[in-house]
Design a protein around this nucleic acid. Structure first.
Lengths: 134, 134
DNA sequence: TTTATAAATGCAACTAAGTTGCATTTATAT
DNA sequence: ATATAAATGCAACTTAGTTGCATTTATAAA
């Protein structure tokens, strides 16, 4: 991916093109699995301030550039692309061996019957198993 | 539920009958929704030490008395009964209005196709919507 | 009933995630 | 070139959850 693309993306979303954001985009695109805050902190060689990082994750999430995933590990993870609960319906796969989280695109959404009085809006699915790398 | 039942349950699981545990069981049984640490801390009038509470939650979970639920809120919640990923297969319903988490018993587990190299072990489902109380 | 002992409790100190207020810096539109 | 709104960095904070250790308590055995 070229820097050009990142700039266009940020502009589209009305976000200023800053070093931290360019580095973040660079890092997210081309990754096939989700990143925690500490993964990101480690990956972004030039130390980025904690609050700056979190604020950018929030901005990106609101802009639909990334989505936040809760995988039962206790910490949020973030992956490129829109959220499954708005727009891009997909499931998440958590490897029980390496704890890596992948987005599984194109899985049929499921229908579940709920008790009287309850109204389903969205269904979120986490698949646990062993990933291709393990 | 009588105290008798709680005592029997603890004995069955090889756990000592203590005040904190009896109070916890008392609280969990008869509830139709999940509790966070802070819910529990508030509910157990007689202040219980944080680590004692967490340790008991862990013991109860290991004994299959309660199970831990991740509802995307960032904090774990706990509900009476065995875990859906061992034994008691069920989905969790999260109310988008009041954030209450309910266990939905008897929902059919589903088959999802994953990419080559990935192996599914368990599927966890969170249903988001509006609950009967809202 | 007393006593030994292993487990449970309470406390303090800690880690790590995530948030907030504020002063400074920087990207961008004019 | 400059004004301005947004982004950054910093410090201080909150809350979830954990750990080590000394004390207490439930229970089983004498």
């Amino acid at each position: 991916m070229k820097n050009e693309n990142h700039e266009v993306l940020l502009e589209q979303k009305g976000l200023k093109k800053t070093k931290v954001r360019m580095a973040l985009l660079q890092h997210f695109m081309g990754l096939d699995h989700a990143q925690s805050y500490s993964d990101l902190q480690t990956a972004l060689a030039k130390e980025v301030d904690k609050s700056t990082l979190y604020r950018n994750l929030t901005s990106f999430e609101q802009a639909g550039i990334i989505h936040r995933i809760n995988d039962h590990s206790g910490v949020s993870k973030y992956a490129f692309g829109e959220s499954p609960i708005q727009g891009n319906e997909h499931a998440h796969f958590v490897c029980e061996c390496c704890e890596t989280v992948y987005c599984m695109e194109g899985l049929a959404p499921l229908q579940l019957k709920v008790p009287k009085g309850f109204k389903t809006k969205k269904v979120q699915t986490i698949i646990r198993g062993i990933c291709a790398a393990c």
